[in-house]
């Protein structure tokens, strides 16, 4: 693989739409994890974080702290944000395209609402293109 021109994480990676391997939206890149490898040298980008647990600290200050405590109360079992390894990313811009499925955790809220709210309303299984 050839070396590429440098780019800015804040502009090119953060806050981009994540599209999973099946072409479905899977949240936003809410934060990026850097890792210092042993033996010195500059850090490398190791993972993308998504989910409200990663968004909270971004909205820093008072509002961010409130968000974090609210999130912990809502879902005490899940405190860690969903993590996507950088190796699974095919492209960062204009959207972050993954080669794999999105992490299960990023879809918890969607699945819960589907099973407990939306799925129970008659007609929820029909789209505009009839026959689905």
């Amino acid at each position: 693989m050839e070396e590429q021109t440098p780019f800015r994480i804040g502009f090119v990676v953060l806050d981009r739409q994540i599209i999973d391997g099946d072409g479905r939206p899977a949240g936003k890149v809410d934060d990026v994890e850097l890792t210092w490898e042993e033996g010195g040298g500059p850090p490398v980008m190791s993972a993308l974080l998504t989910d409200s647990a990663a968004l909270g600290p971004r909205i820093s200050g008072r509002a961010g702290r409130l968000w974090r405590s609210a999130m912990r109360r809502l879902r005490p079992s899940v405190s860690e944000p969903a993590r996507i390894a950088v190796e699974d990313v095919a492209a960062f811009s204009p959207s972050t395209r993954l080669t794999t499925a999105a992490p299960e955790q990023a879809n918890l809220a969607e699945a819960w609402l589907r099973d407990h709210v939306i799925g129970r309303i008659p007609g929820a299984r029909r789209g505009d293109d009839a026959g689905e």
């Binding site: 739409q17 994540i18 479905r24 939206p25 899977a26 949240g27 936003k28 998504t50 969607e110 699945a111 609402l113 589907r114 709210v117 939306i118 799925g119 309303i121 007609g123 929820a124 299984r125 029909r126 789209g127 505009d128 293109d129 689905e132």
Partner: peptide, 14 residues
């Protein structure tokens, strides 16, 4: 960054 849209079946954009 959720799935959105009126044309998709509601269960897919809960």
């Amino acid at each position: 960054g959720w799935t959105w849209g009126k044309t998709t079946a509601p269960v897919r954009a809960a």
